[in-house]
């Protein structure tokens, strides 16, 4: 039953990809001036200077009137995030795929059943302090990728910090074994969620990961449209993948 469901979902995704691939323009034929809004080119993402329009003719035109068409970029607080998520997000899909392939390769080469031990018992001070530091590190990692549109963070650094917490657990606890089943299923569901977000953007706006949510106020948590969701999926995926790599390095085969 589960296999049938998986095949149906995959077939639907492939169908959507083929249908919408036809609507995309050819390489090099994209009319970029139509997509990039003027205030982004002027590197003026944060401030909206509507004051002089008000003084001019006593009416406030809408944002789209001032700056042309609604931007491709989603009002994140720094320009780099806009570029990474809104213009280069298809590349991010490739990067995530490469990471997945390397994780699978390490699993094939190194994976095993038994937890490998170090020669010495871990230091008492290290073992106890890890238990106290753990909520701080995990919360900081989650903070990084939830606030990816407001701070210089994002999915990859946040996932790496979470994997660092898992590595610290492995180093300080002789019996600790990561729950690989949860990690794998989290990774798979987050990866497909990322593709589904992208295809939803393709369906509504005609481009992969087009923003289909309202933008909100710059600087608050629920803003920047689709960016926080994308970063959350990438962060959880990278975190579980790197944790899987760390776990597989610490395993050895029987005999």
């Amino acid at each position: 039953m589960r296999r049938l469901y998986a095949i149906l979902v995959a077939a639907g995704l492939i169908y959507m990809l083929f249908v919408f691939l036809g609507t995309l323009p050819l390489y090099g034929k994209v009319d970029l001036s139509n997509r990039v809004s003027a205030h982004f080119l002027a590197k003026d993402v944060n401030s909206v200077d509507v004051k002089k329009w008000v003084e001019g003719d006593k009416q406030v035109p809408s944002r789209e009137k001032i700056y042309g068409r609604k931007g491709f970029e989603d009002e994140s607080a720094n320009v780099v995030t806009s570029i990474v998520v809104n213009y280069r997000s298809f590349d991010t899909l490739g990067e995530v795929t490469v990471l997945f392939a390397s994780a699978v390769g390490i699993g094939l080469v190194l994976g095993g059943m038994k937890r490998m031990g170090y020669g010495r018992k871990p230091n008492f001070i290290l073992r106890v302090s890890t238990g106290i530091l753990l909520p701080l590190i995990i919360m900081f990692g989650i903070y990084i990728f939830v606030h990816g549109h407001l701070t210089p963070g994002g999915g990859f650094p946040g996932g790496t910090v979470i994997a660092a917490a898992v590595l610290l657990l492995y180093l300080s606890n002789e019996e600790f074994v990561a729950n690989m089943k949860t990690s794998k299923s989290l990774e798979g569901s987050m990866g497909s969620l990322y593709v589904i977000f992208g295809l939803a953007g393709l369906a509504t706006g005609g481009a992969f990961l087009f923003n289909f949510l309202p933008n909100g106020v710059v600087g608050s948590l629920f803003s920047a449209g689709v960016v926080p969701l994308v970063y959350m999926t990438i962060g959880l995926k990278v975190g579980s993948e790197l944790s899987g790599v760390v776990a597989e390095i610490h395993e050895e085969r029987e005999g």
């Binding site: 170090y118 020669g119 290290l126 590190i137 210089p152 650094p157 910090v161 660092a164 590595l167």
Partner: peptide
């Protein structure tokens, strides 16, 4: 934020190298 990430990574580096140096 960057300072906090740097502190975390430097701590991790010290721990990993120490665990390696302890040896078997």
């Amino acid at each position: 934020d960057i300072a906090l990430v740097y502190a975390l990574l430097s701590f991790l580096e010290t721990i990993v190298i120490s665990r390696y140096l302890e040896g078997r």
